[in-house]
Amino acid sequence: MRGITRVRITRVIRFSALAMTLLSGLLTQTAHAETLKIGITLHPYYSFVSNIVGDRAEVIPLISAESNPHGYVPRANDMKRILDMDVLVVNGIGHDSWAFEILEAAGAKDELPLIYANDGVSLIPIAGDPSGAKVVNPHTFISTVAAIQQIYGIARQLADLDPENADFYRNNSRTYALELRKLRSEFDSMITGVNLSNFRCATMHSGYDYIMQELGLNVSAVIEPRHGVEPTARQMADTIDRINASNVNVLFAEKYFASALSNTIREATGVQMYSISHISSGPYTDEKFVDEMLENLTTLATAIRDVANLYATTQ
């Protein structure tokens, strides 16, 4: 009798263990199935979304880290990748028009929910346009203020898709926003007491307008008439005249996309040249945006200090 009971208990334990294993596997599978797969098009959005969702969702870059989003040509793998996403975060006003080609080609145009990161962003025109035209500047991600606007907007829309994690997303977005504001404090500490009155800058393209404007730094001239479009000889001559007339002493060029034009400008005007990151190349990481923005702000602070020192020694 006792032997039979022991056998039954053993069977019950084995059965329970098996059931527990199966149940645990099922729960893991369900949890995995419910984990949101969030696609992103540009490097800054990888950092934004990763910092909002933490480990509660998966962030998938639509194109490989080595690809240049400027003028990107869609590939077959992109279509496969996009079909595995639950939602896609896009800039939508420039830089990632190829994402819409991939959506179209994959037949997911009306199926995949899109989060337009700039929906709630107050846009500004590109600076220094010689014609005076008010053309939308899509580089909202090279900033802290417009970046925070996007982070809150993305977090709100993700919360709608994943209400269970809404509070988590909101709290993370606030923490991340504070981290970005601390970057400005660091910038501040780098130039405390430095005389900014002689600082005049030009930029190779309009990519840095948002960050320059929020820091109160005026851009006197932009070399490329449109992003990626080289100026004509006439436009180039006019720009050089404008740089000389405005006493521009610094030119900010693109870190990732070197241009022979910047050297021409430097030789013709005598400006000092510095490189700023467009945050559009290299590995996708959670820290990339903060790291490269800090690098950009450090470069800006160096340029400001150099100009101040130059004027201090010449006066």
Binding site: V145, L178, R181, L196, E214, L215, G216, L217
Partner: peptide, 14 residues
Amino acid sequence: YLLPPFYHDISWEQ
């Protein structure tokens, strides 16, 4: 909260 445009930093001065 380091909140612009209220926060007194160099950008605020600029």
